[in-house]
Amino acid sequence: MHSSPTFDVQKWQMEFSKSGRVKCWTLMERSTWQLLEAEGVLTCPIGSANDDPVLQEAYAWMKDSMASAGVLAPEPGVSPWWCWVRREQNHPEPYIEDAEGLHDPVVLQLSLPAEQIVLSCFDLWHCVLNKWYVWSSEFDEQDFDRAMEKAEEGSVAALQLQRRMQKSWLAIFELDQTVMDMGPFEAKSIQGCYWTLRLADVTAVIERDALTSHHQA
Rank of each mutant, 00 (worst) to 15 (best):
L42I: 14
L27T: 12
L110Y: 04
I172Q: 02
K18Q: 09
L108F: 13
L129A: 01
P5S: 03
Q109H: 03
Q177G: 02
C121Y: 00
A73G: 03
A204M: 10
A210L: 01
T212I: 02
P45I: 12
F122T: 03
S155L: 11
L36Q: 12
L108R: 03
S111A: 05
G20S: 08
V22T: 14
I172V: 01
G154K: 13
L124I: 04
H126P: 08
F16N: 05
P105N: 12
Q177F: 00
W82N: 00
P76G: 00
M62V: 13
M14R: 04
T203W: 14
I46R: 04
R163K: 09
S189G: 13
H214W: 02
S48M: 10
D64E: 15
A158R: 15
G192T: 12
A147H: 12
P53E: 09
E93P: 02
D64N: 14
T32N: 10
E37T: 14
G20T: 12
Q166I: 05
H214S: 01
S155K: 13
V41L: 03
P74F: 12
V106P: 13
P45C: 03
E153Q: 12
L102Q: 15
E29G: 10
K188Q: 08
V71A: 01
C24A: 13
W33R: 11
V41A: 03
A114M: 10
A69V: 14
H2P: 03
G70P: 06
H126T: 09
Q142G: 05
M1F: 13
E207W: 00
E39I: 11
Q116T: 10
E141V: 02
W135A: 13
G192M: 15
A200V: 12
A204F: 04
A58P: 13
K131L: 03
H103K: 06
E153I: 14
E88R: 04
W25G: 00
L124V: 03
T203D: 09
A38T: 14
Q89W: 07
L211D: 05
S19K: 07
P76F: 06
R146L: 03
T6S: 05
G183L: 05
L199P: 11
M182Q: 01
T178W: 00
E100L: 04
P94L: 14
C44M: 11
D104T: 15
S4P: 00
D51F: 06
P113A: 07
R164T: 14
W25I: 06
G47L: 11
P45Q: 08
D51E: 10
A67K: 10
P94I: 11
L124M: 07
C83I: 08
F173W: 01
M14L: 04
K18N: 05
F16H: 07
H215D: 02
P5D: 09
E152V: 12
L197G: 06
